[in-house]
Design a protein around this nucleic acid. Structure first.
Lengths: 219, 219
DNA sequence: AAGTGTGAAGCTATTCACAGCC
DNA sequence: GGCTGTGAATAGCTTCACACTT
């Protein structure tokens, strides 16, 4: 049994699927905690999340030994550890770039704040939007992005601008010190060296559904 | 070499990652087509999409032999074939359930229509929203969902209701004949037997970014 | 008895490498 | 010469199964 004195990430590279599952487990643990449940087994965690008990144990074992044999996992304790592993032991500062329909909806999306992500700046290139209030913030001209980011640095930027503008906005924000991006423009962006970027492509999700439905129809 | 007389899906089960890549390739092909490019190589397709030439060829080969050795793929032809494979040779009828901030933004999201998905009904449980116009449609009471879906059947429903309401809404809509769901409520829903469902969890994407950034910070 | 932690096995996905065709 | 299509090799992920702990 390894001795993990800290929760410092393990040398081994953790797959994206594992990270996503950890994030899911954390949610379930918070629900259990809310219901006053004190301990859970890998089986119980698995049943909530469409996975297997072995998978849960394997995922957790990548980071240490958090359970007690014969008993399971202590809910509050495991939740705390997962938070530390996922980097949620702190709050994250987020900029929103693009205050159109999707951007505005995201600015006011309560779940972000609830999960530790604070939107602290909003940018838009449309002069008609600049100066307006959105989710308690004043929309700033996209042209002033570098200047504002120098004053109020952020960790992550949410990109909600049109496809044509998206890559440029990422490159500029990355140069201005933003380390992670969540892109909602329906295109695959390229992250500068050393920068984390994830694409959320809603139309592509619908296309994947369309594929499934076409398959079923022939079956 | 196999003889694919139709584009009917192959018996082999196709992985989600392959489907997503096909959807990406299709976008690139449409861009190439728009630029007047007549043929592309697997290398060119790969370079756009952060994958490898071998992966592109493998993905395509699961469905047939679409290229010409020494020449590459004919852009318009391959685009047509990918559309057929993905089930995009037709338009899809979509209901939106939940006309809150996210729902409203999705209702007006142009890319859906552009990619073949027409929102033809909008439901909400809030009496204050019922009767309002949204993206050219009148918001209908969620309670009347079954009645309306009987008249105007849809293939897919987009779920944009609060977490607490999400599973019930899926169960009801599935019973009313909806075959696929795209869920935006930040929870993992369970699809009834034979129903396709995908979760888009935006907070979870941010958490995955937070994980990456925490990793980088220690490196 | 119950349930974790984990090496080993099994499975799936990606990459390699090259014969075959244009 | 260039590039596809594809079996073979490799890598990565999931499941199994069981020793071990409470």
């Amino acid at each position: 049994m390894k001795d993990f004195t800290s929760l410092a990430p393990v040398s081994r590279k953790i797959s994206d699927s594992t990270v996503r599952r950890l994030s899911l487990y954390l949610r379930f643990l918070e629900e259990f905690e809310h219901e006053g449940v004190a301990t859970v087994s890998s089986r119980q965690l698995a049943s909530q999340g469409a996975t297997t008990a072995a998978q849960v144990r394997k995922d957790l074992s990548l980071f240490g030994s958090f359970g007690k044999r014969g008993r399971g996992y202590e809910v509050a304790d495991l939740a705390r550890k997962l938070k530390a592993i996922l980097g949620l032991g702190r709050r994250w500062r987020v900029a929103l770039i693009g205050a159109g329909r999707i951007g505005s909806a995201l600015a006011e999306y309560g779940d972000f704040r609830e999960r530790g992500f604070d939107i602290v700046a909003v940018f838009d290139s449309d002069p008609a939007k600049v100066g307006r209030r959105l989710a308690g913030l004043t929309v700033v001209a996209e042209r002033d992005m570098e200047r504002v980011l120098a004053d109020t640095p952020v960790d992550i930027a949410i990109v909600a601008v049109p496809v044509e503008a998206a890559q440029a906005v990422v490159d500029r924000a990355a140069a201005a010190g933003v380390h992670g991006f969540l892109n909602f423009a329906p295109t695959q962006l390229h992250a500068p060296e050393g920068i984390a970027l994830r694409d959320v492509n809603m139309s592509m999700e619908l296309e994947a559904l369309a594929y499934s439905l076409s398959q079923d129809a022939d079956a």
